[in-house]
């Protein structure tokens, strides 16, 4: 085969280069030369991703609207029909976006979280095994590393890297993600971690705790995460009382396949909202549980000091 020598040389050079990059990145972590290279590429491609996202989303809605056009006899009726349908489609689209924003602001208001709203413009490909998303807010909007990201339903993740105009969010379902959690209505502490496509896992620190399906978990106060953000609902409980930990599977409140509008919490709230952000339970409760009786009081908690703002 022609040129195998050249092929071999190039192959060896590129293999060595790849291994060097991998080693540099793993040793440098978030501050090495490779990380600054990634940040540079991010600042180049971020605006491109924003632009393409802005174009693609409305165009998709436009085409799904036009497909339902019918052929009317008169040209004006036909055109008017198309115009009216387009208006209806874009107002439905605008309405769904407004509803999302409404939900996000309501959640942020309940928890008194100061947020910067942002849209998800790109997702990591699934065969990278990492669950990350790019949002269109960056350092010039006030975003910083490790800030909590929420949406109208609950916890979305935390900020992993930031550039000037975009940021990468590590989603809560990523296998390397974990957050301190608290069972709503109680003081039971635990750790919730992501499991990829499987439901999240909740490890409760007290093995004697009465953990049952239907219990809901919120984030607990910590240095990086804001407290009181809803994480998910317990689905199954493994392990028996008396073992070292109780492990449960958690169904997250956020629909990670349909992320669009999110909010980045830029500062800790002045008081811990405790369970105030969780919606009230529906009246018919499937199984009476002796421990957690969630009854969130949206108008504040008994231990919260009056807002000093």
């Amino acid at each position: 085969m022609r040129d195998t020598r050249r092929t071999r040389i190039v192959l060896v050079v590129l293999l060595v280069l790849s291994f060097t990059l991998i080693t540099l990145d793993m040793r440098g972590g978030d501050s090495g030369p490779v990380a600054s290279l990634r940040s540079f590429v991010g600042s180049v491609f971020g605006p491109v991703q924003r632009a393409v996202s802005a174009v693609v989303t409305p165009v998709g809605e436009f085409f799904s609207g036009l497909g339902e056009d019918e052929r009317a006899r008169l040209e004006e009726l036909e055109r008017e029909n198309a115009d009216l349908r387009l208006q209806l489609r874009s107002s439905e689209y605008a309405q769904s976006r407004a509803e999302e924003l409404d939900k996000l602001l309501r959640t942020a208001g309940l928890g008194q979280y100061p947020i910067v709203p942002a849209r998800v413009i790109a997702l990591g490909p699934a065969q990278g095994f990492a669950w990350t998303a790019t949002i269109d807010a960056g350092t010039r909007d006030g975003i910083a590393l490790s800030q909590t990201v929420i949406n109208g339903d609950g916890l979305v993740g935390r900020v992993k890297t930031v550039t000037a105009s975009t940021a990468t969010v590590l989603l809560a379902i990523d296998p390397t993600f974990s957050v301190g959690a608290r069972l709503a209505g109680t003081l039971e502490l635990g750790i919730a971690s992501g499991q990829g496509q499987d439901p999240m896992e909740l490890q409760v620190l007290d093995p004697q705790s009465p953990l049952a399906a239907g219990d809901r978990a919120v984030t607990r106060a910590s240095e990086t995460f804001v407290p009181g953000v809803p994480i998910g609902e317990v689905v199954t409980v493994q392990g028996t009382p008396g073992s070292l930990v109780r492990i449960a599977t958690l169904d997250p409140f956020v629909a990670f396949t349909a992320l669009d509008l999110v909010g980045v919490v830029v500062e800790q709230p002045r008081t811990d909202p405790r369970d105030a952000v969780l919606p009230p339970r529906p009246s018919a409760s499937p199984s009476p549980s002796p421990s957690a009786t969630p009854g969130p009081t949206p108008s504040g908690t008994p231990s919260a000091s009056p807002s000093g703002g």
Binding site: L14, L15, L17, S18, F19, T20, L21, I22, L24, D25, M26, V34, L37, R38, V41, G42, F45, G46, Q49, A122, L123, G124, G128, F129, A130, T132, A133, T134, K160, T161, T163, T166, T168, V169, L170
Partner: peptide, 13 residues
């Protein structure tokens, strides 16, 4: 390119 998060060089290799 964002939102990539693994060690740089893996997909290159």
């Amino acid at each position: 390119v964002p939102p990539a998060d693994g060690a740089v060089g893996r997909w290159a290799l």
